[in-house]
Computed example of a mutant assay.
Amino acid sequence: MAEAGPHDPVVLVVTGVSGSGKSTVASLLAELLGLPFADGDDFHTRESVARMRAGHPLDDEARAPWLARIRAWIDARLEAEEGGVVACSALKRGYRRTLIGDREDVRIVYLEGSRDLIGRRIAARRGHFMPAGLLDSQFAALEPPGPDENPIVVGIEDGPDAIVAAVAARLGRTPGDACG
């Protein structure tokens, strides 16, 4: 799969387990690149949020309409030739296939981190609906992207600014160099 050019519309799907920093990194990346940002959490129904808040992971059936709403957002960004950045766990290969398909103008950014580091981050955060008790189910469901998915894989040990800089460098972008 070829890299998109510096000025081609591109949608980045920032993935990883809960607590890996998806929303923070995706919003900073969108700001850096001058692209619209969407948080996958905002596409969940109230019922799904309540289910997760109660400590119950979503199954594939409950995730399907959520993924369809995110895919529609991605499609709208591409149709408008604007690009965008969306934070979405997309833990399984099938979920990513639903979101991305075989489109070269949609790229995965996978935030990779250890269970220990992410567990500490989740324990320290406040006000999020995803309880720490669901982290194990996140790792159990996780199918890290393979080379055939052409992911940009970035470790999360460094802070968000370093992660964003690494992603931008892999894209051949610099601050203010909008994708769309």
Results as ranks from 00 to 15, higher is better:
Leu32Pro: 07
Glu149Trp: 06
Arg93Trp: 11
Asp102Leu: 08
Gly94Glu: 14
Leu29Met: 08
Ala76Pro: 06
Leu28Ile: 13
Ala169Arg: 13
Leu35Met: 15
Leu32Lys: 07
Ala123His: 06
Gly176Met: 05
Asp60Lys: 00
Asp59Gly: 02
Met130Ile: 02
Ala4Glu: 09
Val154Gly: 00
Leu58Asp: 00
Asp158Asn: 10
Thr45Ile: 12
Ala140Asp: 14
Ser27Val: 15
Gly119Arg: 10
Gly34His: 05
Pro151Ser: 03
Gly84Lys: 02
Ala72Ser: 06
Pro175Leu: 03
Arg77Leu: 11
Asp39His: 06
Arg46Gly: 12
Leu171Val: 02
Glu81Tyr: 11
Pro57His: 04
Glu81Asp: 14
Pro36Ala: 10
Ala50Met: 15
Ile70Asn: 01
Arg53Ala: 11
Asp177Pro: 13
Leu35Trp: 09
Gly176Ala: 06
Val154Ala: 02
Asp136Ala: 15
Leu29Asn: 04
Asp158Trp: 12
Ser48Met: 13
Val14Met: 05
Gly155Asn: 15
Pro57Phe: 05
Arg97Cys: 08
Gly84Thr: 06
Gly180Trp: 05
Met1Glu: 11
Pro151Ile: 02
Tyr95Gln: 10
Gly55Glu: 03
Ile152Glu: 02
Gly55Cys: 03
Gln138Ala: 10
Glu81Leu: 15
Ala132Asn: 10
His56Asn: 10
Gly94Asn: 11
Phe139His: 12
Asp102His: 10
Arg77Ile: 06
Gly16Trp: 01
Glu61Ile: 14
Glu104Asn: 06
Ala54Arg: 07
Arg96Leu: 05
Ala141Ile: 13
Gly55His: 03
Ser18Tyr: 00
Pro6Ala: 15
Ala168Asp: 00
Gly34Cys: 08
Ala90Glu: 04
Glu112Leu: 10
Pro65Ile: 05
Leu171Gln: 01
Gly34Glu: 05
Arg93Val: 09
Leu67Arg: 01
His44Glu: 03
Ala123Val: 11
Arg46Lys: 15
Ile74Glu: 01
Asp158Ile: 09
Val85Tyr: 00
Glu112Lys: 12
Met130Trp: 01
Ala30Tyr: 01
Asp136Ser: 15
Gln138Phe: 09
Asn150Ile: 14
Leu111Arg: 00
